[in-house]
Design a protein around this nucleic acid. Structure first.
Lengths: 222, 222
DNA sequence: CAGCCCTCTTGAACACGTTCAAAAAGCGGG
DNA sequence: CCCGCTTTTTGAACGTGTTCAAGAGGGCTG
C-alpha cells in the first residue's frame, strides 16, 4: 500500500514547492499552475496527489505543529510555575509561527470553515488537536499549581481553547512583530493562573464545577 | 449625492435576488451569472453596484442585525434580571439566525478573514459592531445587577466578544435546531452572571481590574 | 438642436481552481 | 519480447469570479 517510491518524492516535491511559493507570495497570489510549473510537473499531476489547493496547506500545518511541540517541550524542562510554563508554550508558538504570519492569515481563513478538514475542530484534525491538548496537559501536570481536581482533568482542553483564541487574535494582529498578541499572552496568562488557583476557594467552587461540567457536556459529539 | 432613483431600485433588486438564491442553494452553488440573470441585469452591472460576490452578503448581514436589534429590544422590556436579559438577547439571535444557518456557515468563513471588510473586527463593520455593543450595554444598564463600576463600563464589550464566541460555536454546530448552541447559552449565561457578581468580592477584585485593564489596552488600535 | 458629461449597462475576455479522457511509464508473468 | 494491468502523467477544457473597453441613456448648457 504505502510504497516509498518515486511517487513519494514527487509528492513532497510538490508540497515543498507550494510552501515556498505560499510564503514568498501569499496563498491567493500563488496559482496551481505556478506551483506545478515550479515543481516541474503538470497541473493535473499536482491534483493526482492533492485533491485541492487547500489541502496543500495541511503539510504546512503539520510541520508547524511538530516544530512547536519539540521547541515547547524543551522549554518546559525545569520550569515549575504554571503561569511560566503556559506562557513559555504560547510565546514559543508565536515564535514558530512568526515567519508565516502573513500567509497564516489565509491559512486560518480556510481553517475557520467548519466543513473544511483543516478546521481545528474537524475529525481530520483530531490527531493534531489531541497532540496540542496533550502538550497542555504536560503544562498542567508538570507544574506545581494547586487545583480543584475536577478542574485539573478538564483544564488542558480549556487551555487549548484559550490557545485557539490567542491564535484568532494573532491572525487579526497587524502590529509589528505581532507584539500585541505577545502582550495579550503576557497579561492574560497570569490572569488565567490566578483564576485557576481561585478555583479552590469555596465561593468559586460551584462556578468552577459548572464550567467543568459544561465543557464535558459540550465535548460530546452530536 | 444620494439620489433615490432607478439605480437604488436596481441595487436592492440585485441584493434581494442574491439573498434568495443564497438561502435556496447556498453561497457556493449560486453563481454571479445566475444572480444577474434572475435579477434581469448583466453580470457587469451587478459588479457596478457590488465590488464582489462577498460584498453581497453585507446586505444580508445588516438585515439580520436590524431584525435582531428590534426583536431583542422588545424582549428586554420588563425583564430586570441580568442573566435573564442576556439569555433573552442571545437566544433571540439564534432564532433570527436559524433560517440562515446553512448559509451562515459560508458567511462566517468570509467574515473570519481579517482582510475582509465583512470581518466583525474590521473598520467597515464598526457601525454594526457599535450597535451590537450598544445592545449589550442596554442589557447591563437596564438590569439590577451589582457590579464593580469599572467592570460595568467594559462589560458590554466583553459580552459582545462572548457573543462572537457563541456565534463561532453556532457555526460549527450541526445538531438539530442548533440545540447544542442553545444549551451552551442556557448554561454559560448563568455562569457569566455569577462571575460578574463575584467581581465585587475582595479576592476577585484585582483579577477583575486586571481584566478590565487588559481589554482597555487591547482596544487601542495599532 | 448639438455638444458634452455623467451615470449606468453590456457582454466578451481573462485568470484561476478543478476535472477528465487519454496517453505514457512501470511492472509482472508467459 | 510481448501482453495485460496498475500507477502516474499530461494538457486541453470547463465553470467560476472578476475586469474592462465600449456604448446607451439622459440631462444640462450654449
Amino acid at each position: 500500500m504505502q510504497r516509498v517510491a518515486k511517487s513519494e518524492e514527487t509528492r513532497s516535491l510538490i508540497v515543498t514547492t507550494a510552501m515556498r511559493l505560499f510564503t514568498e507570495n501569499g496563498y491567493d497570489r500563488t496559482t496551481m499552475r505556478a506551483i506545478a510549473a515550479e515543481a516541474g510537473v503538470s497541473v493535473g499531476n499536482a491534483y493526482y496527489y492533492f485533491s485541492s489547493k487547500e489541502q496543500l496547506i495541511q503539510g504546512f500545518y503539520d510541520e508547524m505543529a511538530g516544530q512547536h511541540l519539540a521547541a515547547a517541550r524543551a522549554l518546559l524542562d525545569g520550569r515549575p510555575g504554571f503561569a511560566d510554563r503556559l506562557k513559555a508554550v504560547l510565546l514559543c508558538w508565536l515564535d514558530v509561527a512568526e515567519p508565516y504570519h502573513r500567509f497564516g492569515t489565509q491559512f486560518f481563513v480556510n481553517a475557520a470553515d467548519p466543513e473544511s478538514p483543516l478546521s481545528p475542530f474537524s475529525d481530520d484534525s483530531s490527531a493534531a488537536r489531541e497532540a496540542s491538548i496533550g502538550l497542555m496537559r504536560e503544562v498542567v501536570d508538570g507544574s506545581d499549581v494547586k487545583l480543584d481536581p475536577e478542574l485539573r482533568d478538564r483544564l488542558p482542553e480549556l487551555l487549548w481553547l484559550y490557545q485557539m483564541g490567542v491564535v484568532l487574535f494573532w491572525v487579526h494582529d497587524r502590529s509589528a512583530g505581532t507584539k500585541r498578541t505577545r502582550m495579550l499572552v503576557e497579561r492574560s496568562v497570569p490572569l488565567l493562573a490566578r483564576l485557576a488557583s481561585l478555583s479552590r476557594l469555596r465561593v468559586f467552587r460551584p462556578v468552577s464545577r459548572e464550567i467543568v461540567d459544561l465543557i464535558q457536556e459540550l465535548g460530546k459529539r452530536d
